[in-house]
Simulated assay, not measured.
Amino acid sequence: MMHGGSLDVRVVALDARLEPQWDAFVCDQEAGTFYHLSGWRHVFARAFGHDCPYLVALAGDRVVGVLPLVHLKTPLFGNRLVSNAFLVYGGPVAIDHRVRAALTGAAVERAEALGVSHLEYRSLVPGEEGSDWQVESARYATFFKDLHDTDEANLKAIPRKQRAEVRKGIKAGLTSEVAGDVDLLHHFLALSFRNLGTPAFSKRYLRTILDVFGDAAEVLTIQAPTGPVGAVLSFHFRDQVLPYYSGTQVEARAQGVNDFLYWEVMRRAVARGARRFDFGRSKVDTGPYKFKKYWGFEPVPLHYEYRLVRATEVPDASPMNPKYRLAIAAWKRLPLPVSKRLGPLLSWQLG
């Protein structure tokens, strides 16, 4: 227990009874994100079998801080404790630095007890964890933009070249439809991941996300006159829309399908009240990073914070790491049906 003035705080493991309070706290805090919601622990446990020791700080019966954690113990990538695994944001959300310190102290104790290589926070704002932590702020960036109330204003706000691509898609007869078509989403996601040299997730994972988050998770498919050419899974949180997993048919990119897809996400989100577009994480200076800049979004650095436990150096599991280059090149050459079968055997380990 931590004592601070009149505030006595204890850190406990999250249970089902506290989940409504956890989520209400996340929604109420500026630092809270969709990726801090308690539902993710059910997603990762059900889809991948990972243990998720989510920590909650209580003052009396009141939630004053939360820290989602996923324990990844896998054959390929070892033993890690990550906040938040498979997602772009994480780390503690707390009412003040004392509560944050209590959560971090409990997380370090858990990491040491589990014998992990390291504890990792994926933070929008770097914390003040101390000299025992190392921070990497140059590898990843995220992208945000406020939205206008009308389609006309939002379309005009897109830089001219990308706006022309959106209009190209409209002229080509592309349309969008909201539907929970997991098979179609998985197909285009597997295609996109294969082309990037990355194992795709299972349909079970995607279905579990939709089941756990309900109306807050939405599958949008893109149709051409000849048939489906793309799909995207987006999340809705407060006044934000967050397109997260997407894929398109390579042959349809000449019709502007990528730009049309994100325009439709934006247009439909504004109609349901969204006023902020979160374009998500990209590795600095990669194709997706540049694409988001072409849309007029400015990069915001993400701060990956590491507390080494058994490791002696900060890990680098990035696809940009030269030691993964041959594996990535080989994966890109796989036939799509083969990559669909093999992907789920590997992707649950990535985190």
Results as ranks from 00 to 15, higher is better:
Pro159Ala: 10
Ser318Thr: 14
Val99Thr: 04
Ala13Asn: 13
Gly60Thr: 04
Ser192His: 02
Ala113Leu: 05
Phe188Pro: 01
Val12Lys: 05
Ala157Arg: 11
Asp96Thr: 05
Glu313Tyr: 01
Arg272Gln: 13
Arg238Val: 11
Pro225Leu: 00
Arg100Met: 03
Leu342Met: 12
Cys27Ala: 15
Ala31Met: 08
Thr286Leu: 06
Val250Gln: 14
Thr142Gly: 15
Tyr294Lys: 09
Phe144Met: 12
Val82Trp: 07
Glu109Trp: 00
Leu350Ala: 05
Pro225Gly: 08
Arg139Ser: 10
Val63Asn: 08
His148Trp: 10
Gly227Ser: 03
Leu155Ala: 14
His36Glu: 06
Ala224Glu: 07
His97Trp: 03
Thr150Met: 10
Ala200Asn: 15
Phe193Gln: 15
Val88Asp: 14
Val270Gly: 07
Trp348Asn: 12
Val219Gly: 07
Gly49Arg: 02
Arg160Gly: 09
Ala317Tyr: 10
Leu18Glu: 08
Gly351Ser: 04
Arg276Trp: 02
Gly230Pro: 02
Glu129Ile: 01
Val229Asn: 12
Thr142Glu: 11
Ser234Gly: 00
Thr198Asp: 05
Phe144Lys: 08
Pro243Gly: 09
Asp146Pro: 06
Ala329Ser: 14
Ala141Gly: 15
Trp22Thr: 01
Gly247Asp: 06
Lys73Leu: 00
Lys340Met: 14
Leu87Gly: 03
Lys161Ile: 05
Arg310Gly: 13
Ser83Arg: 02
Tyr140Pro: 00
Pro319Gly: 03
Trp133Asn: 01
Ala327Met: 13
Asp316Trp: 01
Arg80Thr: 10
Leu302Arg: 08
Ser339Asp: 03
Glu112Pro: 03
Ala216Asn: 09
Gly343Tyr: 05
Trp295Ala: 06
Met320Ser: 14
Gly180Asp: 14
Val108Asn: 04
Leu308Asp: 04
Phe77Arg: 13
Arg160Phe: 06
